[in-house]
Design a protein around this nucleic acid. Structure first.
Lengths: 211, 211
DNA sequence: GTCATCATGTAAGCCGTTACATGATTGC
DNA sequence: GCAATCATGTAACGGCTTACATGATGAC
């Protein structure tokens, strides 16, 4: 699952580990809090598998270090570049390791996205949907409908026996809140599915075009 | 976390493993899908720690096997009891192991509930809140406010940089949905906190009593 | 010259899963 | 008698966390 996220982010542009983590925190609420203890080994593993490769930073303009308003013009920036060039090997020079996705990585990404993972929980689904632009329309629809079916099934399981009447107020509140959350998710999925079927982009305004 | 759930359920009445799992599936949406592979070892561990003890089924009326409308009167039920008594040791007789919580178990439960676990994620919080009746009012309030603070912080982290404008529609939809979910959670917590401060039960009607 | 932040990594371990293996009970 | 469900367990493994260790860079 982490692999999927990493490959998905790297598909847009080369990044280094630290930056990947920031994007996971800020961008997707899902999978926030991935720790370096899992992120870096994952990167190393993916590189070993040939899915990623380390690149020269010069070759990857978007992944560069965040320059914060150089007070002495651009001089310090150039300095850094010169200092970097002065040393030798592609790694170790400036401590950062910027990764780029390879063709093999894109294959792997497609596999993971299509459903290599057996169970799909909340996180897994959210992640797949976030990268759904890489899926074929039919696969997208299948993803959404599979998730919807799961949620509906869960709703059936929860409310079914004897109601929530016998629980104390706290437990009841938790259950009710959870149920409402799932119902909300189903409505959301319905909107996405409708948009998908209409072959319109998901952001389309639903109040316009009555038929 | 599983331990907390087990002890919490067993605090109400003795249960066997299979039944505990059912209640986790049906009752709390959280922690649904606990597998036997983790549940049974957990029960064994808790028993070894003296937090649980196996009981004679006769001594635990509520934990009895679900009798499904005996067609021949109550005869088959009595049969089962007789057959059970015919054999010897407290375990193995009828394959089920019914557990009861001990005083030590209640201590452990209180510890876990109070916050022995370091990080509190969604699940951990939901579980604690579900058993919040066992907490002192101040601890309850602290739990709710801590969670609220976490969610507000997350909201700040997510929307902050450059907005969601640069994401594709799918990713944007995921992020927006997540943000709305968190906002909804915060409102829910606000209601619970207000109820808690007013020393009213959590289900109290908020539209009445303007001040 | 020191502190915060950026940046990468390792080691130990927890908590849970899947897959497998087994057996009792009951309905038909 | 056979299948479905109830019921308990074991073994192997996976993925992620915490805690630790290290060092570069830049701001003041």
């Amino acid at each position: 699952m982490l692999d999927l996220a990493i490959l998905g982010l790297l598909d847009s542009r080369p990044l280094h580990g630290y930056e990947i983590r920031r994007q996971l925190r800020e961008g997707l609420g899902l999978l926030a809090n991935v720790s370096y203890g899992s992120l870096y080994p994952a990167l190393a593993r993916l590189e070993a598998a040939g899915a990623l490769e380390a690149v020269d930073e010069e070759a990857a303009p978007h992944a560069g270090r965040r320059v914060r308003t150089p007070p002495t013009g651009s001089l310090s920036g150039e300095w850094a570049v010169l200092r970097a060039r002065a040393r030798g090997n592609a790694r170790g020079r400036r401590s950062r390791r910027v990764y780029r996705i390879t063709d093999r990585g894109r294959e792997l990404f497609a596999e993971l996205l299509a459903g290599a993972g057996p169970a799909d929980d909340e996180r897994s689904f959210g992640l797949r949907l976030a990268f759904a632009r890489h899926l074929a329309p039919q696969a997208r629809l299948a993803l959404l409908e599979r998730r919807r079916a799961q949620l509906v099934q869960r709703l059936g399981e929860i409310g079914a026996p004897s109601g929530t009447g016998e629980l104390d107020p706290y437990a009841r509140s938790v259950v009710e809140h959870a149920v409402e959350g799932i119902e909300r998710d189903v409505l959301w999925l319905d909107r996405l599915i409708a948009a998908e079927r209409g072959e319109r982009p998901v952001g389309a305004d639903t109040s316009v075009r009555p038929a």
